[in-house]
Amino acid sequence: MNQLSPLADLRSQLARITSTCRRPSVQGIPIGVPEIDSLLPGTALARGGIHEVIGDQGAITSFLAALLGRQKAVQHVLWVTPQGDLYAGGLSQLGLSHRRVTVACTRQTDNRLWAMEEALKDLPNGAVVAEIEQADLTETRRLQLAAESSGSIGFLIRRDRQPSAALTRWLVEPARSRDIRPTWRLALERVRGAEAGGSWMLEFNHASLCFNLVAALAHGQAEAAE
């Protein structure tokens, strides 16, 4: 790991330089909370890359729906899932209208990986969410390259913390709320090519479709990547 990391570092720097050179105009997806966005290169979840999310499945679903729901510029959200249980009523209350969501449902992991890669190649103005569970370094690298080539953005929901080519990794867990509104504990665990991390409590404001920072649990480096 230690021997590899300078190489990986160089590679990621190179990738960042080339991808930003190629597509300077592509806007990322900001979370809308300055404390968090400021830790991210470009102050947003960068396009032209994939972002990993681990944690509680229900919490991840609502968090991503809210995150993408606020981004009206994201016209198409392709949600790749092994189950057909996404519910349009709940998604739309989080801001993600039924007009913007397309579901691709398949039980086979390799089909979900394939669907995510295809979508990353062809959804430059959209976003892909894929519940993959497990993916190795090579597979994440393929996804990352597909995203870089078109400037699209993908969210890879997985179970483990295996090495990966993703730009960031997030942990999303449910958190106690004030009045049964969506509330999450969000942790930034890893940012490729940077030493950043943190953990926050966010709640969802249904009226403004925004995230409110409830309380900073542990700022700064506490949960930075290994």
Partner: peptide
């Protein structure tokens, strides 16, 4: 591009497995 993507997805995953919701 989106419609072509949908064609490819439906071709491999099955037409009924790629969908959107209508109230």
């Amino acid at each position: 591009r989106f419609s072509q993507l949908i064609d490819r997805l439906q071709g491999r995953l099955g037409t009924r497995n790629v969908y959107r919701f209508e109230p």
